[in-house]
């Protein structure tokens, strides 16, 4: 069973790195998009206020939670493989 613990430990580390990268990329892209929207013109108020409001919306959004799929999908794949190999 130590093999299983090893596998899950290594997978957790690797997936956390991938999750961190995707999360930061998504956040950066959202911020860039908000700034570009403001710079395009036609929005009143300060730039910082607009960006902060957009980022607060992003923080509660579903897209952000979708990145947790990085953990879920490999887990689902492994569970499916175990079922197919052993119980079918």
């Amino acid at each position: 069973m130590i093999g299983g613990i090893r596998l899950f430990a290594i997978a957790f580390v690797v997936l956390t790195v991938i999750y961190a990268y995707l999360s930061l990329m998504q956040r950066w892209r959202c911020r860039k998009q908000l700034e570009a929207e403001f710079d395009a013109g036609g929005i009143d108020g300060s730039r910082d206020d607009y960006v902060d409001k957009g980022m607060a919306e992003y923080r509660g959004s579903f897209r952000r939670k979708l990145i947790l799929g990085v953990y879920i999908i490999p887990l689902m794949v492994v569970m499916t493989l175990i079922y197919v190999s052993n119980y079918m």
Binding site: G3, G4, R6, L7, V78, L81, I82, S85, N86, Y87
Partner: peptide, 10 residues
Amino acid sequence: WGWPPYFKFD
């Protein structure tokens, strides 16, 4: 749990 990832236990 090893390679190849067939997860064969039975």
